[in-house]
């Protein structure tokens, strides 16, 4: 008899794990609160480091789902243990009893309006990294109006204890450099600045992207945080920052400011974790058994985690974790 598996979160991790477990012959229920699968990937235009379009990546993830039962627009109302199995009930009225549960609840983007000094939602020409992707995907955003001076601020809601976010969000450096190049390509006459604390270009091909940004695109990298932004009468933005390499204060006038919003624990994931009494770390992300061999397991037998639910991850990391989780769940269900 085929065993049931519930996967909560229909982003890349959830889809990849569903595809693998479906291929192994399990009955997989993939729960997603939105109208469509894809998570943040569905709202992204191109992926670093090569700038590969996100669409085909998403399409292949969806295409591999096989017989997976996808439950869209479903909020989790309750999740609890029944002996060795789990019982979940959803806002759509469906309830399922399963032998294993995988949480792929991902992350939320930091609400950029919380860093009020950057003026997101207050000034006309301040956008986030997600807005830029949306702009490239759909082609229209009144805030991005042929800008000639563009600034990108790294670490908005990352490495910022005052904002309650101590962690590095891992992907924003590469995303910022990628978007800086894309904006320069779109508006060739523009001057583009990146304001960074440290550049963490750790992955394969990332350093090449960084060098290309400097040599080919002429992006100006300034090491220092932006302290405040004000809007002038002509709606241009005046930012104050410090160039910490030359120890000089700076004042720059810009037409567009892009905030690299970081990764925060997803609200849905925290809610579901509370239901099943899964601990969260000090940073708010879900706790896995350990950071090495037990990365996909949790303190609760039969409950597994994958992807950015346990902390900021790149897309390749997420997909790898989803596969690891699928193989671990298979092993667990074979034993029981």
């Amino acid at each position: 008899m085929a065993k049931n598996i519930i996967i909560i979160g229909g982003g890349p991790a959830g889809m990849e794990a569903s595809a693998r477990l479906d291929a192994l012959g399990y009955t997989v229920f993939l729960v997603e609160k939105e109208k469509a699968l894809g998570g943040h990937l569905a709202r992204w235009d191109r992926l670093f480091p090569e700038g590969k379009p996100a669409g085909p990546v998403l399409d292949s993830l969806v295409g591999n789902l096989g017989n997976t039962k996808v439950l869209l627009e479903s909020d989790v109302l309750s999740l609890n243990r029944l002996g060795d199995s789990f019982r979940i009930s959803l806002s759509s009225g469906v309830s399922v009893i399963a032998d294993a549960v995988l949480l792929t609840t991902g992350f939320d983007l930091f609400e950029a309006s919380k860093k009020e000094e950057y003026g997101y939602g207050i000034y006309d020409h301040v956008v986030t990294n997600a807005d830029v992707e949306e702009f490239f995907r759909t082609g229209g955003d009144p805030r991005i109006d042929n800008p000639q001076r563009i600034g990108l601020v790294h670490c908005v809601g990352s490495r910022d204890e005052k904002a309650g976010c101590r962690n590095c969000s891992k992907v924003c450096c590469a995303t910022a450099v990628k978007q800086a190049c894309e904006l320069k390509a779109k508006f060739p006459a523009a001057t583009v600045y990146c304001f960074y604390m440290d550049l963490r270009m750790f992955g394969r091909g990332y350093e090449d992207l960084y060098l290309k940004a400097q040599k080919e695109y002429g992006i100006r990298f300034i090491r220092g945080r932006v302290s405040e932004v004000s809007e002038r009468i002509d709606k241009t933005l005046q930012i104050k920052a410090e160039d910490t390499l030359s120890s000089t204060p700076l004042r720059v006038t810009l037409d567009l400011l892009v905030l690299m919003a970081g990764m925060r624990p997803s609200r849905e994931g925290t809610k579901v974790a509370k239901m099943i009494h899964l601990a969260t770390g000090d940073d708010g992300f879900l706790s896995s058994l350990d950071g090495f061999g037990g990365m996909q397991a949790t303190s609760i037998p039969g409950l597994f985690v994958a992807g950015a639910a346990t902390g900021p991850k790149t897309l390749p990391d997420t997909i790898a974790e989803a596969r690891a989780a699928a193989s671990l769940i298979h092993e667990y269900l074979q034993k029981s």
Binding site: E116, E117, G119, I122, Y123, E228, V229, S230, E231
Partner: peptide, 12 residues
Amino acid sequence: GCMSHLTPRIIK
């Protein structure tokens, strides 16, 4: 003052 510059909605 600096703090109002960090909360631009007040200045506005």
